[in-house]
Amino acid sequence: MAKYNYLLGLFDDEEPLLAAVHKIRDAGLNIHDVLLPFPIHGLDDALNARETKLHNAGFLFGATGTAFALLMMSAISVFDWPNNFGGKPFFSMPSWIPITFELTVLFSAVGMTIVYYIRNGLSVFKDIEPLEPRTSSDRFAIVFDLDEYGEEADMDKISGLLTSLGALEVKTKGMSKRHPSHEEQSTRGFASGTN
């Protein structure tokens, strides 16, 4: 028996999956995670997942970029080496608008992307063992943590429910690393699991 065990219900389309998530939560069972080949609308509500705050990072980095651009150009053109260009003032906002805009966009995009990569646990050195390889192609999986439902009876109940909700296949998968649950991914990113 592997260290961490998961039970996967595989669906072949978005509608049965979405309906199944609602029914499973209504039945009072805890969904560990959902794996998808593309984003599905309504799933966040179905899982009762909170909205991501990622865009706040974009705003904060963007504001940093604006401040950096204005401070940099002021420091250079007003204090360090004021130069007279055609009689324009040393502090000349209109001329600085393009660079301020570009640096705002640059800081916001780069900063937000870095935060996105960190929060989603993405790194070039990360080699994962997928729970189910087909979920990146044509299968939609609802994952249950079997350490939570240790009993044989629970397993039968979950498999029965999944099958009745239209799952094509129900299988167990042993993993050497822990797969963080969707709540953990939401609060602590992927740092909570080693996978």
Binding site: V34, Y116, K126, I128, H182, Q185
Partner: peptide
């Protein structure tokens, strides 16, 4: 595997993916 940065396609990853796609598009 290196090029895919350890992507798993979890619900949360896709949620953030949609958020960053929209903001980057806006930028």
């Amino acid at each position: 595997s290196a090029l895919s940065f350890g992507w798993q396609g979890t619900a949360r990853q896709w949620q953030r993916f949609e958020s960053i796609s929209l903001v980057l598009a806006g930028l």
